[in-house]
Design a protein around this nucleic acid. Structure first.
Length: 548
RNA sequence: GCCCCGCUAGCUCAGUGGAUAGAGCAUCUGCCUUCUAAGCAGAGGGUCGGGGGUUCGAAUCCCUCGCGGGGCGCCA
């Protein structure tokens, strides 16, 4: 098997398909051949409706085109056979190739499926950056898990990724938060629009102990001190929560640092010179002079808005820190901000394509909308306490970002016990157990496996799933859609469970049998699937237990 | 009013314009003396929200209507 096989079998069949078409004399651009997984076993493993696609160009019946392609196509390494059915060409992976794949996957270990797609591209993913004015709730957990899983995918595919949390430590919300805590310290109600959750009162208690008497200070000094303290405590709590989800942020970047570095100021200067800013009603606006679209950068009071910070933040990341691309993960309630950020980037001379914004729909409580200010939410920590880190991550990732989640805590708790994550973890633990048993029953086993002994359909089905892994990684990465991974994990786990179970029904199909050669071959399959299962679980931040 | 997302099995959700639309849960029926039953095998369950259109081909693309969620601030 050649080295190119690491690119994934789908791509290789795709290339062979194009070669075959060229050999028919077709030149110029080709339509999308829609080579993809076949529907069912009757149609093989991959299929392309290539006959229909080329019928017009070649002015021949689809079936005839498909036949000619099926006859002439040369799939490398004899990886697949081609068969024309109507205008389709169906590809079936050969047993010989699947067997060799097993040995190759075992050799590559958890690196199987990893690529250099990104060529070391410097990327930042900024996610989970909630205002540190309260604990993380179950809505925020979604963005955190999504963002971190994207990072894992990007790292696996050769990107240099930095995980960043943007800490809003000096905006209006932060000030309101500080004022709310201060009010509670004095035994007063928080101001209008302030934060009323019970944690605010607890924070006031803490602050009283830590800061002592602030009554003697001028009120703005006192506010700054309390705010700084309260934000600091909240950031630590958030840090602890995300750590429980196994999310390793590289940078906690405070908004205030932008101003210390003079970046918003610089951005404003530049935009002013390029004519993107306009004074109106005593405030400074960004935009095209459209009353509806334009946004305030500096208020008439002279105070900057968050947007001013964001302008500086763009410079910080694209110019100062030289990220080639920045991915931002936002909840859908920020969607109105997407175009503004893109046009801001463009106005600053940054290609908006380099700013990738991923939106995910909201997580709502069954009882209604969550609200930090009103103190109505389910904390992320509580969910982790109740169902565990792995189930939480899996739960979020089983949904496409476009699907809104209506969260029912009671239901989540019952489902925690039968969470699909255990199905996958169990498959992994079983494989480990089999390998241990093999070591106990056989003092010595052949060093190399004779993979041609893997002939049972359920054995080849496991190998088939392994063959699909590279394309799953590729698609998930290119589309930035980590939710594809848990679905693959499930399919692989199913194949593994069936393979295992064959030995429960008939003992000669067990992995560990008297024949050392046969045992060794099946062990190779166990290892290959264990590596892949573990790699896949790691990409979504779920542990692969050795025992359950 | 304008913008974004969704509507697929009883429930929760997958589904790069391709063939007979899938999974989990729930329901029902089988399978443990022997590598882990947190498992396996099987059954039932669908006008892919409605209606138009494009296409050889539409759950998928376009238009339109309905329902649900979210957003349209000198808040973030």
């Amino acid at each position: 098997m050649t080295e190119t096989s690491v690119m994934g079998i789908r791509s290789r069949i795709g290339e062979a398909l194009i070669d075959a078409i060229r050999n028919l004399g077709v030149e110029g651009d080709l339509p999308d051949l829609e080579l993809g997984r076949a529907k069912g076993p009757d149609h093989g493993d991959y299929a392309s409706p290539v006959g229909m696609k080329l019928a017009r160009v070649l002015r021949q019946p689809p079936a005839q085109i498909a036949s000619r392609i099926a006859e002439t196509i040369d799939v490398p390494d004899g990886a697949a056979t081609a068969e024309a059915v109507g205008g389709y060409v169906n590809f079936r992976l050969t047993a010989e190739w699947l067997q060799r794949l097993v040995a190759q996957v075992d050799a590559r270990g958890q690196g199987y499926g990893a690529t250099d797609l990104g060529h070391g591209e410097r990327m930042q993913v900024e996610f989970g950056s909630i205002n540190p004015t309260g604990p993380m709730h179950i809505g925020h957990g979604r963005g955190v898990v999504l963002g971190d899983s994207m990072c894992r995918l990007l790292e696996f595919t050769g990107h240099a990724v930095q995980r960043e949390y943007y800490v809003n430590d000096q905006n209006t919300q932060a000030r309101r938060f500080g004022l709310s805590v201060m009010a509670r310290m004095r035994g007063e109600e928080p101001p209008e629009g302030g934060y009323t959750g019970a944690y605010v009162t607890e924070l006031a208690e803490l602050a009283r102990g830590e800061l002592g008497d602030i009554g003697s200070l001028p009120s703005d000094e006192a506010e700054a001190k309390v705010r700084q303290f309260a934000i600091g405590v909240m950031v630590e709590r958030i840090r602890a929560s995300v750590a429980r989800l196994n999310v390793p942020y590289d940078e906690w970047f405070p908004e205030s640092r932008l101003w210390l570095e003079g970046l918003p100021q610089l951005a404003i200067e530049r935009l002013r010179e390029s004519g993107h800013l306009e004074e109106r009603d005593g405030a400074l606006w960004f935009g095209e002079g459209d009353e509806e679209e334009d946004r305030v950068v500096i208020r008439s009071t002279g105070e900057p808005t968050y947007f001013a910070s964001d302008l500086g933040y763009l410079l910080s990341r694209f110019e100062r820190r030289h990220f080639n691309r920045v991915v931002e993960v936002w909840a859908a309630d920020h969607h109105g901000y997407v175009n503004r950020m893109k046009s801001a980037a463009a106005a600053l001379g940054i290609d908006p394509e380099r700013l990738v914004i991923i939106l995910h729909q909201l997580v709502n409580l069954k009882e209604g909308k969550m609200s930090k200010r009103a103190g109505r939410f389910v904390e992320l920590d509580e969910l982790i306490d109740r169902v565990g880190k792995d189930a939480v991550r899996y739960f979020y990732l089983l949904r496409s970002p476009d699907t809104a989640i209506e969260f029912d805590l009671e239901l989540a708790l019952t489902q925690g016990n039968e969470n699909p994550v255990f199905y996958a973890q169990y498959a992994h633990a079983r494989l480990v157990n089999v390998e241990v048993t093999a070591g106990e029953r056989h003092a010595t086993l052949p060093e190399r496996a004779d993979v041609s002994l893997l002939v049972q359909p359920w054995e080849l089905d496991v190998a088939r799933q392994l063959a699909f892994w590279p394309e799953v990684v590729e698609d998930s990465t290119k589309l930035l859609e980590p939710h594809r991974i848990p679905y693959y994990v499930h399919d692989l786990a199913t194949a593994v469970h069936r393979f295992y179970h064959a030995g429960n029904e008939t003992s000669e199909y067990r992995v560990v049998v008297d024949d050392p050669e046969l045992t060794r071959a099946r062990l190779e399959l166990c290892r290959a699937s264990r590596h892949t299962l573990k790699a896949a679980l790691e990409l979504i931040g779920v542990t692969a237990p050795e025992r359950m």
